[in-house]
Design a protein around this nucleic acid. Structure first.
Lengths: 219, 219
DNA sequence: GTCTATATAGGGATAGAC
DNA sequence: GTCTATCCCTATATAGAC
């Protein structure tokens, strides 16, 4: 590979040509959607010839799959690890919110891509499972829900928490973190805010959200 | 137009050929994304010849635009009307949640389509504004936020509500309603639930969500 | 208004030189 | 490993008969 002549803004991980392609593909796929993305555009942003994409990843679909798996590994496993740890519930909520809002501030379209791919391309479902946790097909979700369920029941018995189903707990938490980023273009129109205002909005959220959520759990 | 020979399951509004096309286009665009959608597929599901699509809507993009505007008009205006009405906050929360969950249970991919189109196709932003409210460019969002802001401040002074920014209020409410549907394929994998379990999940949500949200607003 | 037939372009993919 | 040239198919779009 040629070391010089890198066109796009390259990160520290832009070492090998394959990485450059993967990074560019990630950007283009997320920006335009997999169906709308153009191989030539990816090649251009990676600063390489279009034929090289087929040399490294045989087809567009394989390239999309590689990007998808990378996206799936970016955040979900870390969230799951927090939720099934043995930390207190308040601790879990804070840590999940901190992690999600920090990460999504840097990669705002990440969840959109994940969701959109899953919706349009049924094969991705299996790929998600194997990407997030090597072999466990369904047990992951059940395990997290069981852990949370035990914690919640204990707190309800102690009169320090309002009853809530574990799945509703998880979905509420994820909704409040992810949706603002996924719906960013919509919110900008509806709330009439621009880019800096959006960042201020998220900054405020990092301060307020955990407290709002935890008040919702009080008895 | 020929009255017989309708292939797809037709609704009561499948009266004119143009409607049939629009309905089929809606289904295909939402299912496959605009870029992934194929004109032939739309024609097939509408039960008409492919050339007819171009007779009624000159290009694929115009057809996509028509579908988008229809999608935008489906829910947003009603939500906005509730939020800027003079009902009490508790009442607003309940009504928005009821309306959204009922509507999205029938059209789960509606918000995904809206968001995805806005993200991928910058021209849609302007089209959204003119679709939701004829001429008012930005004032809609500001007006809703002002109304809510006044209500919240009054309640905070009366010590019956915890302070919260109007924009955070709106985004929290929308997040909790919309995200579960937008992320449905993801949630099915993560929570290990199938179609009927998802419906049960939403049914439970229609009972619990307003109370959860309102607890989050308590002082 | 609706159909058949066809023009045209764009994009994914390959062959083969270097 | 990387480039140039090119193939081929698919999808949008149009022309024109009925």
């Amino acid at each position: 590979m040629k070391p010089a002549k890198r066109r796009g803004r390259q990160t520290a991980r832009d070492v090998t040509t394959e990485d450059r392609i993967l990074n560019a593909a990630h950007a283009v796929f997320v920006r335009s959607g997999t169906a709308g993305a153009r191989m030539h555009q990816i090649a251009k942003e990676a600063g390489v010839n279009a034929a090289l994409l087929h040399y490294y990843f045989r087809t567009k679909d394989r390239l999309a799959e590689a990007v998808f798996q990378r996206t799936a590994r970016a955040l979900l496993p870390a969230i799951i690890r927090i939720l099934e740890s043995d930390a207190e519930i308040e601790e879990k909520v804070s840590r999940v919110i901190d992690l999600e809002l920090a990460h999504l501030s840097r990669a705002p379209y990440l969840p959109m891509h994940l969701i959109s791919e899953l919706a349009h391309h049924p094969a991705r479902v299996q790929q998600l499972v194997s990407a997030v946790f090597g072999g466990a097909p369904d047990s992951i979700g059940r395990r997290v829900q069981a852990t949370l369920g035990r914690q919640i029941r204990a707190r309800v018995r102690a009169r320090t928490m309002h009853p809530i189903e574990p799945d509703q707990f998880i979905v509420n938490l994820m909704s409040l973190c992810v949706f603002p980023f996924a719906a960013r273009p919509l919110l900008k129109v509806l709330l009439d805010i621009d880019e800096p205002a959006f960042h201020a909005f998220i900054a405020r959220r990092r301060v307020d959200l955990a407290a709002f959520f935890l008040r919702g759990l009080r008895p």
